[in-house]
């Protein structure tokens, strides 16, 4: 009787698998064609004409994680804007730039973008707490949007405080605030596994600034490592 139940369960699983595969074979091409059209529209609207969007992975399977290539004549800001626009198309699950087989991996400029956003505005927290002030919601939306092209990289969120008060409390507070920002980014759709946090308390004040200065209370973002698509040996002549 036990074997029979197990067999029924396995048959159900096999049936589900067959259903999934058949469903993808039947509807996949149409679904991806729709994504393709919307991605192309988003690209053109962002001014990224010339960027090719490939909806096939390196094994040739259809995917909803497109690989971008070309657009070499465009400046970095346009490329980033184009990538961000494509990434926000509903249904698309993250994008990557292909390493065109020459030179280093494409450098994404999310970190610069985020720094530019945070130059004039800061993420605000409630006094002595790690609760993000609701007034910073829109700012966090913008930060998320500019980090999205770097999905696949490790993004470090670091919290800092000024040196008033107990250093241990400051350390915990900066960690808590970095953690709160991380969760806010996850809530906005960034994948959790690429987001790391650290709290440095008041140990790293802004260079040239008095450690007491409240301007030292801040959240910094750094894109530590980007994970470009590894080219296959065929793409890189001379590779072993």
């Amino acid at each position: 009787m036990k074997t029979r139940n197990a067999l029924i369960a396995a048959a159900g699983a096999a049936l589900s698998l067959a259903l999934a595969t058949a469903g993808t074979a039947r509807n996949g091409p149409r679904f991806v064609a729709g994504l393709e059209a919307r991605a192309a529209a988003a690209r053109d609207q962002a001014g990224g004409q010339g960027v090719a969007i490939a909806f096939r992975d390196r094994y040739g399977w259809l995917t909803r994680h497109p690989i971008l290539s070309g657009g070499d004549g465009l400046d970095a800001a346009t490329r980033t804007r184009t990538a961000a626009a494509i990434a926000t198309v509903p249904g698309i699950g993250g994008i990557r730039w292909v390493n065109d087989g020459q030179g280093g991996p494409r450098v994404l400029h999310c970190q610069d973008d985020v720094e530019r956003i945070l130059e004039t505005r800061t993420i605000r927290f409630s006094e002595a707490s790690a609760r993000i002030d609701p007034a910073s919601d829109r700012l966090l939306d913008e930060v998320t949007r500019s980090l999205r092209p770097c999905v696949g990289s490790i993004i470090a969120v670091t919290g800092h405080t000024d040196d008033s008060g107990d250093p241990a409390v400051n350390l915990a507070l900066s960690q808590g605030r970095a953690e709160a920002v991380r969760w806010a980014l996850i809530a906005r759709g960034l994948p959790a596994d690429g987001l790391r946090t650290a709290g440095l308390g008041s140990t790293k004040p802004i260079a040239g600034l008095d450690p007491h200065d409240p301007a030292n209370r801040r959240i910094e973002f750094s894109v530590i490592q980007s994970a470009p698509v590894k080219p296959t040996p065929i793409d890189t002549p001379g590779a072993e």
Binding site: A9, S16, L19, A20, T24, W61, L62
Partner: peptide
């Protein structure tokens, strides 16, 4: 991740969860 694999994972996951809940309900005492 190819589309078919995403689909297969999500369908199997749904099946597994449904199966698990069904199993628990079916074998509930009382």
């Amino acid at each position: 991740m190819p589309l078919w694999l995403e689909m297969a994972v999500s369908v199997l996951l749904t099946y597994g969860i449904g199966f698990g809940i069904g199993w628990l309900l079916w074998n509930r005492k009382g």
